[in-house]
Every structure is written in C-alpha cells, then in structure tokens.
Design a binder for these strands. Structure first.
Lengths: 250, 250
DNA sequence: TATAGTTGTCTATATCAATAGACAAATTTA
DNA sequence: TAAATTTGTCTATTGATATAGACAACTATA
C-alpha cells in the first residue's frame, strides 16, 4: 500500500509536468521530515524507482530545486537537503509586522514600494466604511526578513483623515509609527479573511518566487479600539517561507 | 501596465503547461469577480489575445474547466460561468464546524471515516501536554456541505480521559456533542497554525480534487475554559471551495 | 434570410517533456 | 589502488504541448 501510494500520486497528462510534481513531492517530504535537512537524498535511481519515472525526470526535478536553493548536488557524493525554516508569522488582534518575529530572524523591515491616491473600490469602501469612489491612499509595501521577501501588502487609508501617511511611512518604515502621527496609538484587527492560491506574475516578481509557488492571502480591516475603521489591507505571503500563527486569545 | 501585466504572468517552461496556467487564471478571475457568474466569458480569440497564447491553448484550458464543472460551453453562443461560491469557514475561539456555516448551505455534516488508538507523536504529545508515546485516540473525519467535501481532519484525544469518544462521535456526528458526554460543555481554540501547500495523493482522494489543487492546512489545539488541552487537530481545506474567515475578537 | 459572431473539428509543424541507454567524472569504500 | 557508488553529459526516440490556418456547425441579429 505504502509502496504503491507514491507511484499512484504522480498524475500524467494533468497539465503539470512530472518533474514539477516530483519536485513538489520532494519539497513535501522535506517539510514532513521524511527527507531530513543536511542529509543526502536517496540516489537518483532509487528516487526514479520510488516515483515510477525515468532517472532523467528525477534529475529535472532535482535541477529545479537546486535552482530554487533547496538542494545542493555534489558529483560522486550525493544530493543534499539544505536547511531552511518556515517563518512563523503571528496574526492576532494586536499583531504588528515586526513584533512577533523577534528571535526568529536577525534582520527585518518593511519597504515602501509605492503610494498613490485613488478612488475606493467596492470592497475597500465597504471595509473602511466610506462611499464607493471616495479618495483613498494606497501604500504598497514589502516585508523582508534576513534579506528575503516574506510578505507583500497593499494598504488603503481614508485620504481625508490620513493625508500624508505615505510620507510618514517612507520616513518611519512602520505603519504603527505612521499612524501614531495621526493620533492613533492603538488599533485592533477587526476581521481577517484568509485564502490560498498559486502565485501570479506580480507575486513571482514581488516575492522572488518560482512559477507554481503558493501564496497565502489575507484581507484584513484594522480599527481603533472604539471600532472606527482605519486601514483595509490585502497581504500575500509565500507559503514556502511563511506560516501564519493565529493567536486567537489575546 | 495593466494590459501587459496579464500576458506577463503566463510563464513558459515552468513545469506547468500553459493551458493549466490559463485555467487557473480564469478560475482566479471568477473568484475575484472579473468574470461574473452566469455570464459569458470573453470569446476564445479575445482570451487568446489577452493571455498572449494561441486560441487552441485557450480551448484546452476551457475544456479542462468544463470537465471540472466550472464552465459550460455552447456552440454558437459562448462559454458561460456556472455559479459556485467559496464557502466561508469561520475560525475563532469558539467556532464549531456547523455553527458558522448556517445560511450558506442547505446541508452539512461530519462523517467519521475511521478511528484508532496509537502512541502520541512528538507534536501531538506537546499539543495535549502528554508524554510522548502516551496512548491517544485518533479520529479521522470529513466535513461535507451540500454533498461536497469541504474539509478533512484528524483529531487526537487523550485515550485515558476520552475512552469511547470514537463511539460517541459515530453516534452523534458531532465533536461538540461527543465532548459533552465527557462533561465538556465549553471549549476554546487555544492556538491555530495555518499553512498552504499543493494537495497530495491523500488529499486528492479524500477531498475529490484535481491534481495541482491547493489545500489550506490548520493545526489547532482546543482547551477547556481553564486551559486544559483536550484536542489536537490537523485539518485540510480545499482552497478552491473554502476560505477561512478569522474572527479574532470574540 | 443573409450576415456576423461564436464554438467545434481537422491538418500540419515546431518545441517541450519523458524515456532509454551508454559512458564520463568525481567521491567513497574495500 | 581498485572497485563500487553517485552525479554529470551526450545521443536518440516517442508522446504531450503549443502554434498556425482553414473551415464546419450553430446562434443571434440586422
């Protein structure tokens, strides 16, 4: 059963090439600990037999993972699993970007990519309690930890109330600090909706991902303690680098 | 910029065929409302131009989605988006399976697939505050709404404290009701860790998915109001049918 | 009833993906 | 040092994927 199961799970003619499927299987085996970090993978011929494909197909999969920095192949010795940990990103009523990441990484910050003023779309207007088409400020940001992108977010603010928040963000590099300039010294996450999908072209570029990667997407509304909406945001996290830890009771 | 963005996001030589990528893009466009339900898609030639591929490639993508029951093609008239909504699954301190789904579906229930007694693994023991190897009861369940699988879960319970919970679950079809038999009439979600990955062979079979599908994975610990751990669980949700709504403040 | 617009089918060609086999190059082990 | 093990490179062949063009079949509309 176990022996057959693996060969069975490779699907031909699915629109996903065999080498890509096998690369994903190897990633999964690493994630579950079946292939331990800093040890050698089974030799190519063994993997080929395990997955029921040709050795060259396995080599294509390994080649892709070497390209992605997951494996390192050494002629004559073997192919080794490099160590890489998931960043555990906390989400709760009072979570801020950098607060919960302390101790996990040595360096982390937010980069402001761009800002613009635009009319509110339907969902942004709803989230912020504004009329559709009302002017909102949009901040595009990227979160980085140890030099690698770990999040990509768009945040919308009421343009009348938060005029100049783009400048504050550029200067402080922090949403919390920027909001403090407008008299907001505490805010809560009112709602978060979470989904997952394949990374699109923008994700691939923004988060430095390979095609086929998965992103976690959160859509959230932040409010003042008395319930006034101040920020609507959509964030994307690369699933291969980040897991979201939900702290419900805080 | 907007016009180019779409053509750019199709990646060649990525291990994922163009027709599969375009099928995913169409699914995404449906999800975001760009292609409204019960209306016609743009004609094939327009889609081919939009995505920068040949008309026949678009036809392959559409053919796959017709097969999956997402679209219906009618010769001479057009290709139509069938209605199908994402189930919004609530997660919060007091969320139960069926409570939050009211109104979204006409029929929902949990099926007990199997139960067993086993020694606790490292993470299960940690979650439940038991010694590693202590006996635990494992319940495998599937959640269904309107006849379609929407979740697949494994739950672990201390075998000494909850002996017979498998029978209770089989009879009541409800975790909450089963726990009530052991004097637990309230419990809270202490922690939830969320991740996403491609569906593996087991997911494909359990949740009736197509290869390449994405699953959301939650790992959670439920506790009594005074903090005593009672259940450790790992659940998988098909991202194409379910989104998770996090109700942080409850 | 034409005509335009749309999906369906067919042929042909080029490229990518997968299999197959042989052997080279590097490393470890006996 | 010799043999065994493992990754790297090359050639060749087959099937799936993608492009291209032409035309048939069906629908809605002027």
């Amino acid at each position: 059963m176990i022996g057959r199961q693996e060969a069975d799970s490779i699907e031909r003619r699915s629109g996903v090439s065999l080498w890509r499927q096998i690369a994903d299987r190897i990633l999964q085996a690493i994630a579950t600990g079946d292939f331990a970090e800093n040890t050698a993978l089974p030799p190519e011929v063994a993997l080929a037999e395990r997955y029921g494909v040709n050795r060259h197909t396995v080599r294509s999969a390994i080649s892709a993972l070497v390209q992605e920095g997951v494996l390192r192949a050494e002629q004559g010795r073997g192919t080794f699993v490099l160590s890489r940990k998931l960043l555990s990103y906390p989400i709760g009523a009072r979570t801020r970007f950098s607060a919960g990441l302390q101790g996990q990484t040595s360096e982390r910050h937010i980069v402001l990519l761009s800002s613009s003023v635009e009319p509110a779309s339907q969902r942004v207007a709803e989230g912020l309690g504004l009329a559709r088409g009302a002017e909102v400020i949009r901040l595009e940001t990227r979160g980085e930890a140890d030099g690698r992108p770990v999040s990509r977010a768009a945040g919308w603010f009421d343009a009348r109330r938060f005029a100049g928040i783009d400048k504050a963000m550029a200067e402080t590099g922090s949403i919390t600090a920027s909001l403090a300039r407008f008299g907001i010294d505490d805010y809560l996450r009112q709602s978060t909706v979470l989904s997952a999908r394949h990374a699109d072209a923008a994700d691939l570029a923004d988060l430095d991902l390979q095609p086929g990667a998965i992103v976690l997407v959160t859509v959230a509304v932040n409010v003042t303690p008395d319930g006034q909406p101040i920020q609507f945001s959509e964030s994307r996290f690369p699933a291969e680098r980040v897991e979201l830890k939900l702290s419900v009771n805080n």
